[in-house]
Simulated scan of single mutants.
Amino acid sequence: MIIFRHYLRKIANNIMSLQKIEKNAVLIKNTMDELKVDLKVMNEKYNMLLAQQLREENAKLVLAVEQAKQKLILLETQNGIKQIKVPSRKMCTQSSGAPVQKLAEEKQDLQKVSEEKTNANKKPKEAKPKKVKETKEPVAELPIDVGRLDLRIGHIDHVEKHPEADTLYLLKISCGEEKPRTVCSGLVNHVPMDKLKDRYVVLLCNLKPVKMRGIVSEAMVMCASCEKGVEVLIPPQGCSPGDLVECEGYNRNPDAVMNPKKKIFETVAPDLHTNDSLEACYKDKVLSVPGKGNIVAETLKKVPIK
């Protein structure tokens, strides 16, 4: 009996707890509904405030645009630009008859006025004087003869064997310039070194410099040459380094450096020879140092000069 009462009391307590939970649930639901209503009201008020703020800002922008437009119209009017009234949007959306055509014509008039104003501000271009083309007279080509060769008297200051070629001498020859010229000469098998030391020679000075076994040769020693042998030409007594060699009947007008493509020396060389008197000649004219004498060979007559 006591146990039964205990269970009844416990059941009664559970029923009261359930009723309390149900009551709390209803209270929570009501509170949630009230919060939803309050939130909706607050959201509507916020949207209204935001819309009002946007309207105010939009009105400020419209006012600023209108002021800028009026300022632009004032400036254009002061500069003489004609103002044309633009028809309303309503008018433009009517039938595609006269109003649209009139708008196009007014737009063309506005563009024309603007172009006239721009052209009026432009300075007229000054006519530039025409350049007269200068006609260059063709340079007369000099005849190819002995006068194109720069033949001078040179003095051999030093002679030795070429370090890289057994058949070449390496010579230092003074010819009236600031420093001696370096000459590579193939005389090893024809003229002893002793006969070249401290002697005067005839030097061809305007050949294009050429590298021979690693050393640049800047001139050529003129020699009488044939199958019998090779002899270095002998200048007249009393010559000095740099004395010029001339040929009677031919103007001495040498190239600074003979162009190998024009083959000047190759054209002149066949007419260089010695005569019966051992004199060095071009055709039938003797080569000489004016006022000092003729160029001669030692023993070779009527042989080519190279």
Results as ranks from 00 to 15, higher is better:
residue 39 L to V: 11
residue 155 H to T: 02
residue 296 V to D: 07
residue 299 T to G: 06
residue 52 Q to H: 11
residue 167 T to A: 11
residue 154 G to H: 06
residue 301 K to D: 07
residue 147 G to P: 00
residue 278 L to H: 08
residue 163 P to Q: 03
residue 82 K to P: 04
residue 108 Q to P: 00
residue 51 A to C: 09
residue 100 V to D: 05
residue 16 M to Q: 04
residue 28 I to C: 07
residue 73 I to G: 02
residue 124 P to H: 09
residue 76 E to A: 15
residue 107 K to V: 12
residue 2 I to S: 15
residue 257 V to D: 01
residue 69 K to V: 06
residue 21 I to F: 10
residue 141 E to S: 12
residue 61 L to H: 13
residue 236 P to A: 09
residue 2 I to K: 13
residue 219 A to P: 03
residue 103 L to N: 11
residue 143 P to L: 04
residue 32 M to N: 12
residue 167 T to C: 03
residue 141 E to Q: 14
residue 67 Q to G: 07
residue 125 K to Y: 05
residue 95 S to I: 06
residue 90 K to S: 13
residue 53 Q to L: 12
residue 214 G to T: 05
residue 180 P to F: 00
residue 289 V to I: 14
residue 248 E to C: 04
residue 226 C to M: 07
residue 61 L to F: 13
residue 275 N to Y: 02
residue 79 N to G: 08
residue 288 S to N: 07
residue 254 P to E: 05
residue 243 D to E: 03
residue 177 E to S: 06
residue 173 I to K: 02
residue 305 I to S: 08
residue 194 D to K: 15
residue 96 S to N: 12
residue 29 K to N: 13
residue 158 H to K: 15
residue 31 T to F: 10
residue 123 K to L: 12
residue 104 A to T: 08
residue 249 G to V: 01
residue 183 V to K: 06
residue 273 H to Y: 00
residue 129 P to S: 13
residue 306 K to I: 10
residue 120 A to C: 05
residue 204 L to Y: 05
residue 237 Q to V: 04
residue 265 F to I: 00
residue 15 I to T: 10
residue 160 E to P: 03
residue 142 L to C: 00
residue 283 K to H: 02
residue 47 N to T: 08
residue 187 L to C: 12
residue 249 G to K: 00
residue 214 G to K: 03
residue 87 P to G: 09
residue 19 Q to H: 05
residue 108 Q to S: 14
residue 225 S to Q: 14
residue 61 L to D: 10
residue 232 V to M: 13
residue 78 Q to F: 09
residue 92 C to W: 00
residue 159 V to G: 03
residue 36 K to T: 07
residue 191 V to E: 09
residue 181 R to Q: 10
residue 94 Q to S: 13
residue 215 I to G: 04
residue 101 Q to F: 15
residue 90 K to V: 10
